[in-house]
Amino acid sequence: MASFLRTTIAWAWLSGLLLGCSTPTLYSWGHYEAQIYSSSVTPATMSPEAQVAQLEQDYQKARAENKRMPPGFHAQLGYLYFQLGRLDQARRELEAEKTEFPESAVLVDRLLASLKKP
């Protein structure tokens, strides 16, 4: 019972710490991680079109709040556009990933090269 109480208190404290404090985050996360979860664990729930629409909305919202998108966001969006055959938009998003995060250059150049393949 004592250990149960301890864990409960620790948990309440932890949740308070995580939810209550308004620690400023570096990025605006939107649905990026939620989509990774749903597209891998329950793949039938959302079409690529719906995923693109949701991420584009996240991006507009973040821009309005002057916040940065997290690492991987533009690459993910670019990959979805690529799956839909919308190659210009795919290219634009991949370039955005590289501009925001030069660490992604090798990955992005590889993806861009595969877009050029017939």
């Binding site: 991680e33 990774i36 664990v41 997290p70 991987g72 993910q76 990955l107």
Partner: peptide
Amino acid sequence: STVTRPLAERGYYVFPVAV
């Protein structure tokens, strides 16, 4: 699907896991 955020908020570039 939960690993990117804490690492990125810690200051790292995290490769897009699904891609």
